[in-house]
């Protein structure tokens, strides 16, 4: 029984953090928002060069052979940076589904970054993220997973408040799709929920850091607003929420990464526990961050909006806190 990260895992996380901090600033993100495809120029390729897209592909298929424990820490950093592209959908869900589904060529094209993937599973609801920039969609139909080329699907845009997270509904015909017969919908769904949970942690941490910085500088009545207890206690609560959600996310990552030790029902329960607290944490972070910023946080020019909107979206994505508590209640027989 050990529950801490190795130095190598920390170093890998730090490398991603540095890359995103240099290449995915709020102004970079705004370039993506203003563009047609929503992408931050060059960043996807940089992540592909570092192997991030191939983390969950086995070494013999040209991947890094890492697991979900490594992946959640990268996704936390993606959330922290506000990275606006479908990293979780592609690297944490589609790549392993293609590998497990036996679609070797598609898996290696996705792992190398040659093609971009997104996903559409029933548990995620009808709106698919970044479908317009995807070359390949991994979609659920009738309880099975299909690899669908984008030209075999039709898209209807569904404009949403987070301009970095572009949504569409998708229709497709299985005639032009590849059945990923051996890939499990349950596993793909749990990976997607885990991915959203990890990003919720990162978004929460960013909102907290940004707000601590702001209230330490902003003065009213002759002193920093961050010196008032009302403000301190809001932010202490955010910190507590993140502190106790994170271990459940790491524990769920271990459960997903340990199919030999953890039965599918237990894995799904662990993932739902993580999402319940991660959604609660990010909701609280959004609420406190906006309140402690005051009117400046309520503007589109101020960068806080990037994480507020991502937080709102991710809190509900793949089931909100109440939905996952209900799933946990079923699992524990309440």
């Amino acid at each position: 029984m050990r529950f801490s990260f190795t130095e190598e895992q920390d170093m890998f996380r730090d490398t991603i953090r540095d890359l995103l901090s240099n290449r995915c600033s709020p102004s970079d993100i705004r370039v993506g928002i203003a563009s047609d495809d929503g992408r931050v120029p060059g960043l996807w390729d940089a992540l592909a060069d570092m192997g991030v897209l191939a983390m969950l592909a086995p070494e013999e298929a040209g991947g890094l052979g890492m697991n979900e424990i490594d992946m959640v820490r990268v996704l936390e950093e993606a959330g922290y940076a506000g990275f606006p592209e479908p990293l979780g959908e592609h690297a944490a869900v589609a790549v392993p589904a293609l590998v497990e589904g036996g679609a070797e060529h598609l898996a290696s094209a996705a792992a190398s970054g040659e093609i971009t993937c997104t996903i559409g599973l029933d548990a995620g609801g009808p709106y698919i993220v970044s479908a317009r920039i995807a070359d390949l969609l991994v979609l659920e139909q009738a309880g099975r997973l299909w690899a669908v080329p984008s030209d075999a699907a039709t898209f209807t845009e569904q404009p949403s408040i987070d301009a970095t997270r572009r949504l569409t509904t998708v229709e497709f015909d299985t005639a032009n799709a590849t059945l990923l017969d051996a890939a499990s919908v349950g596993m793909a769904t749990d990976r997607a929920i885990l991915s959203a949970s990890a990003q919720c942690l990162g978004v929460s941490r960013r909102l907290l850091d940004a707000t601590v910085e702001y209230v330490s500088q902003r003065h009213q009545f002759g002193k920093p607003v961050g010196s008032y207890q009302a403000v301190k206690h809001h932010l202490a609560n955010v910190r507590i929420g993140v502190e106790f959600a994170a271990p459940l996310v790491y524990r769920a990552a271990w459960s997903v990464a340990s199919p030999k030790s953890v039965a599918p029902a237990d894995r799904s329960r662990d993932v739902s526990m993580a999402k319940a607290l991660a959604s609660d944490a990010v909701d609280a972070a959004c609420r406190a961050a906006l309140q402690c910023h005051g009117a400046i946080g309520y503007t589109i020019e101020y960068d806080l909006q990037i994480w507020l909107k991502r937080g709102w979206a991710l809190s509900a994505a793949w089931g909100d806190a109440r939905r996952h508590r209900s799933l946990v209640a079923d699992a524990i027989g309440v």
Binding site: L208, V212, V215, S216, K223, P224, G226, S227, V231, K232, H233, L235, A236, R239
Partner: peptide, 8 residues
């Protein structure tokens, strides 16, 4: 707030 987050 003061020792973990570093607020004034």
């Amino acid at each position: 707030a003061e020792r973990v987050l570093g607020l004034p």
